[in-house]
């Protein structure tokens, strides 16, 4: 079966959905992605849907599921590149993807994830400094 590639970029994973996904592909993607998050310790997942001509409730639910599972594995999901006509349709359909962060394009999505990484590192540095002081 055709599978959707998952690329590692720094501490994030990038998925570009370029084909009209049928159901088994969507399910395989969820499984592959969670495995990769666990293997790589990625803190962010970018899903580029700029090639998708429609997002129906099945794909919407898949995006929601991916975001929820990634969150449990300590990674943040950002869906990027949604076409304007798709956004209009989703809202009218009643699907607002509340559990999913979105950004206009891949670049802005990376900024969101980098900011989160910077926050995590700041906290780690602060805890490290605390440990040093208490060690004196």
């Amino acid at each position: 079966m055709e599978r959707i590639p998952i690329l590692k970029m720094g501490r994030a994973l990038l998925i570009t959905i370029q084909v009209d996904m049928h159901d088994q592909m969507a399910i395989a993607l969820e499984e592959d992605l969670t495995t990769r998050i666990a293997q790589t310790g990625a803190k962010g997942v970018l899903i580029d849907i700029s090639s998708l001509e429609i997002v129906d409730s099945f794909i919407g639910r898949m995006l929601d599921n991916i975001a929820a599972v990634s969150r449990v594995l300590d990674a943040e999901t950002v869906v990027v590149g949604m076409r304007p006509a798709v956004a209009i349709t989703l809202v009218e359909l009643g699907l607002t993807l509340q559990g999913v962060k979105t950004a206009l394009n891949v670049e802005r999505g990376f900024e969101l994830i980098s900011r989160r990484l910077a926050e995590i590192e700041t906290v780690v540095v602060e805890i490290g400094a605390e440990d040093e002081r208490s060690g004196d």
Partner: peptide
């Protein structure tokens, strides 16, 4: 936009 709406409805 209308195409997208109708294709989405058809998919559902």
């Amino acid at each position: 936009v209308d195409q997208t709406k109708f294709v989405t409805a058809a998919s559902e």
